[in-house]
Write a protein that binds this DNA or RNA. Structure first.
Lengths: 333, 333
DNA sequence: TAATGATATTTTAACGATAACATTATAATA
DNA sequence: TATTATAATGTTATCGTTAAAATATCATTA
């Protein structure tokens, strides 16, 4: 900018005004300045601008695992909105680790992001840093793995309800003995397990605690948890398995097949999230559809509202889930 | 920082030195300053620091489509490295559009990123902006969809070779008539098609141009391209189909099944990239494995080398592909 | 006791952009 | 012609941090 000013013998201020289309700049001067800027290959320095305005137009995102299809889709939804509203996206990965999540948050703050979108890691049970950030007034919105009641808005699906409906669906089709592959006991995982328990309770069915095994959110955990169940002593086996999400279900399917059982005839199984793989499986997976892109969009939209209007109230936004009945539950013959 | 300085009656400079562990600060002073900083909840302002140092420790990434499994994995590889080396990741999405790609690049420059990682959009044939950026000396590395020979390093797999090997594999198993679902004629797409053509030529097999149809990189395009082939007048049909990538192959499979043909007995098909879905398909897809995470890692590593040493030479890095033989090619009975 | 050296701290200026205020030039009015 | 309004441009100070230069403090030595 100074160079342009020097080149044309005007002040930097005039250049600034011309390039930002402010009032009271002579049309000719403006034209010359704009042309010279183009000719000299001027690129505005947002860092400097940010320092003055204390606005970076940047949103920080903390994701538990980028390469997971679900989160990739959420990010894509977030990006849709930030693109529309001219914000930038600073992406960080907690790799499901509490420590890394905290470090990521600190970094985002240091970067002076205008707001933060967080989905908690599997390990996160201590919300003190999150709470502190919210208390300072820094706009923050949770998505998917949310912490409710600490002052920030949340965007997720009604996990308990989705899980309840899926369980009810199975019960309606005559299944009586269930195993459950549970996630870690944070928001989403907890809610889904509760939905499962409630459905069984409401139908006066027994809950066999041995068959509720923590698998976590990933294939490997699902595989191992399922194996553990199949290896339990005694010859009783659950007739149906509900998994906390599709990756866990996909892992479990591998274990079930390894043991020589057939899906859904020996063991029926269902997932949660409608992963892109679900419909393509050899035995297509019955699952609960979660509007991943919408979750991202809603979360980003809410965050930007909070950023642009500090009085925007906090709210818990629940999107609707849908049962996607395919073959793995054995219900649609 | 000023507040801390005022609080303790020292100068801001001393605070800066203390917090950055510089020389010549009294141990006691340092300790008090560090404590007070913690107590007052001080977060460094990287925006200000960047303005002084003209380094943001931020890397910009331009991705054609975030929600695609392949790119999500690449991003995950990139993030591994940026995390290790303490850089931040600014993510942008070109949505396969040339215009958006250019806008993204401009924005990243304005954000003063230390370097840029780009994978070109399907539409990109005009490299002038990219070249201009490279010519200004801004570190830039291409990955996957690269532009060679304009001064920037590139990281991808040897697409031509991978495609050639796959074609040769099919020929070796007796297939003689091939259709090809091609990507757009940019780097990756072009190279793969050439590998296909070369293999046929080297084996003195005819290339039927009608059966080379542009599908693009996505499921829908694959579906439509395949349909077009199957609807061609005359009763000859290709015995095997090679797709430019797995999403296109997955789309094509849908079309093939819709027409009532069986895979691989009526029509064999192969993909490229080893999508997470490939092994789970009803008829598991034979494909070419691309080390997606490594591509991300290598690209990020190279970029950081260029950032930290302007004399780092440009190079074209080709990672190795591997044939993954499953059932869809009908070769392993 | 003054000079020297080492350590600790402060002052100043700068990074690039801009808000707020100040100035100049020009035209319109009294 | 003097006065005032208006448009166009300039000056200064600032955002938070830090490099570089300047100054202060104190112990050591000649």
């Amino acid at each position: 900018m100074k160079k342009i000013a020097a080149e044309l013998g005007v002040s930097a201020m005039t250049v600034s005004r011309a390039l930002n289309n402010h009032d009271n700049v002579d049309e000719n001067t403006k034209k010359t300045i704009v042309e010279t800027a183009k000719k000299m290959g001027y690129t505005p320095n947002r860092v400097a601008k940010s320092l003055v305005s204390s606005r970076t137009y940047t949103i920080g995102v903390v994701i538990p695992e980028i390469s997971h299809a679900f989160f990739a889709q959420v990010v894509s939804g977030i990006e849709n909105v930030t693109y529309e509203k001219d914000y930038q996206l600073l992406l960080t990965n907690s790799a499901e680790k509490f420590e890394r999540e905290n470090k990521a948050l600190e970094t985002l703050l240091a970067q002076q992001v205008d707001g933060i979108l967080v989905s908690c890691s599997e390990e996160t049970t201590d919300f003190s840093l999150l709470k502190r950030i919210i208390d300072t007034g820094k706009p923050l919105v949770f998505f998917d793995r949310c912490v409710e009641g600490i002052g920030a808005s949340t965007v997720s699906v009604d996990d308990r309800n989705g899980s309840y409906n899926m369980t009810q669906h199975m019960i309606d089709h005559g299944y009586k003995t269930f195993a459950y592959l549970s996630g870690p006991q944070i928001s989403t995982g907890k809610e889904r397990l509760e939905g499962f328990r409630n459905a069984l309770k409401d139908n006066k069915l027994d809950i066999k605690e041995e068959w509720i095994v923590e698998s976590g959110f990933q294939e490997k955990g699902g595989y191992e948890a399922m194996k553990k169940i199949l290896e339990l002593p005694g010859d009783k086996m659950p007739r149906a398995v509900l998994a906390v999400n599709d990756p866990a279900a996909i892992g479990a399917i591998e274990a079930i097949e390894e043991f020589g059982y057939s899906i859904p005839d020996d063991i029926a199984i269902t997932g949660f999230s409608d992963d892109i793989r679900a419909r393509l499986l050899k035995c297509p997976l019955t699952t609960v559809y979660q509007p991943s892109v919408s979750i991202g969009r809603k979360a980003a939209e809410k965050l930007i509202k909070v950023i642009e209007n500090k009085d925007e109230p906090a709210e818990n936004i629940d999107l609707l889930t849908d049962l996607v009945i395919r073959q793995s539950c054995g219900c649609n013959k």
